[in-house]
Amino acid sequence: MSLLDLGIRYPIIQAPMAGVQDCALALAVSAAGGLGSVPAAMLSPAELRRSLTLLRESGLGPFNINFFCHHQQELDPAEERRWRQTLAPYYAELGLAADASVSSPTRAPFNAEHAAILAEFKPAVVSFHFGLPAPELLDRVKSWGAKVLASATTVAEAHWLAEHGADAIIAQGLEAGGHRGHFLSDDLSLQQGTFTLLPQLVQAVNLPVIAAGGIVDGKGIRAALALGASSVQMGTAFLCCPEATTSALHRAAIQSEQRHHTALTNLFSGRPARGIVNRLMRELGPLSAEAPAFPYASAAIAPLRSAAEKRGCADFSPLWAGQNASGCRALPAADLMAAWLAEAGLA
């Protein structure tokens, strides 16, 4: 897949990042010649339609619309009780009732309603995390000519995606911020860094491979392209842009010494995701067997997060970020991209 196939001028894809962006960042990146992305897994059908309408009315594009493809389990009440018991001391500390709740978005896997809404707008690119949707849903997406991108964290996952209809593979290295895209095995020891995974995937599949994880500047872009990537996907580097909705607490962590210590944690959602280590991760350990299955862990965390953030504290907030936040600057997305392209020799 060449850049022409994606309809973009430069080999930069903005990673879809739920919770820290809306359409503004995607619009800025696409306007600057990259591929702007919108995370849709936490949007209601009405919100998804509003976002797609805004993108279409902008006259810009193309855009990437991203969804999750996890197999949603039923909530286990016993797991929920154990999780709340684990968190009980924090509830008491913040003066919260044991059964306190806060309304928060759900994380729905891609379904027929999503596909029907997309069909009205026909986005040029649709991407998936945690595998691919059911064949009939994937066929619906591809029916209007959309290119399908999907994340792989191992060679085995890349082979699976290539065999099941992906048009390009996102090589998600272990450095990447946010949720791991693994779907064939939960064994995190199978996962590799970007610059070891990337050349293996380039050799393993006859599809374009997009490098993701730890790439925050022009030097990283140049290195990824030299190793055979068709383009790069960058997320953490955009977090401090004015177009991002990253909270003040999150921005402060990224711009502090805290950014040098990240870990994979399941405490905030029930599934491993990389973020800056905070109090909850230190005290419970970043990976806990007590956390309910994805996405249910977040329900009991939400009241703690809300109460702490009102006090100016990020002890219970997911501070998603990759291992390298050195390129994260408070500049407009277009200015950042221009600097990266010049450094990479692509301007």
Score class of each variant (00 low, 15 high):
Leu161Glu: 06
Gln192Trp: 09
Leu336Val: 01
Leu174His: 10
Pro318His: 09
Asp5Arg: 08
Leu201Pro: 13
Val141Gln: 03
Asp99Phe: 05
Leu25His: 11
Ala26Pro: 14
Gln191His: 14
Ala134His: 15
Leu336Asp: 02
Pro135Asn: 04
Gly95Phe: 01
Arg279Gln: 05
Arg305Asp: 11
Ala224His: 10
Gly36Leu: 00
Leu149Asn: 02
Ile210Glu: 00
His261Lys: 13
Glu343Phe: 05
Ser127Lys: 07
Leu201Ile: 15
Ala46Pro: 13
Val125Arg: 10
Leu188Val: 03
Ala212His: 12
Glu47Ile: 02
Pro11Asp: 01
Leu161Arg: 12
Met42Leu: 01
Leu267Cys: 09
Gly213His: 10
Ala226Cys: 04
Val20Ile: 14
Gln191Asp: 13
Gly19Lys: 08
Phe195Lys: 11
Phe121Ser: 05
Gln172Val: 09
Thr246His: 02
Ala40Lys: 03
Ala237Val: 14
Phe238Ile: 00
Pro208Ser: 01
Gly218Leu: 01
Ser37Gln: 04
Asp76Val: 09
Cys240Thr: 08
Ala211Leu: 02
Ala152Phe: 03
Ala325Asp: 08
Ala88Thr: 03
Pro242Ala: 00
Leu280Phe: 05
Leu132Ala: 12
Leu161Ile: 09
Ala150Gln: 03
Gly235Ser: 01
Ala119Lys: 15
Ala273Trp: 08
Ser103Glu: 15
Leu137Thr: 03
Met42Thr: 15
His164Tyr: 09
Arg329Ile: 04
Ala204Gly: 09
Val209His: 13
Ala119Gln: 15
Arg180Ser: 14
Lys147Val: 06
Gly95Asn: 01
Ile8Asn: 06
Ala211Asp: 02
Thr153Lys: 10
Gly275Ile: 02
Leu198Asn: 11
His114Phe: 05
Ala308Pro: 15
Gly33Cys: 04
Thr245Cys: 10
Ala158Lys: 11
Glu175Ser: 09
Ala299Asp: 08
Leu75Met: 13
Ile13Met: 06
Cys313Glu: 12
Asp217His: 11
Ser288Val: 10
Val126Ala: 00
Ser103Pro: 13
Arg305Glu: 11
Ala41His: 14
Ala116Glu: 13
Ile8Leu: 08
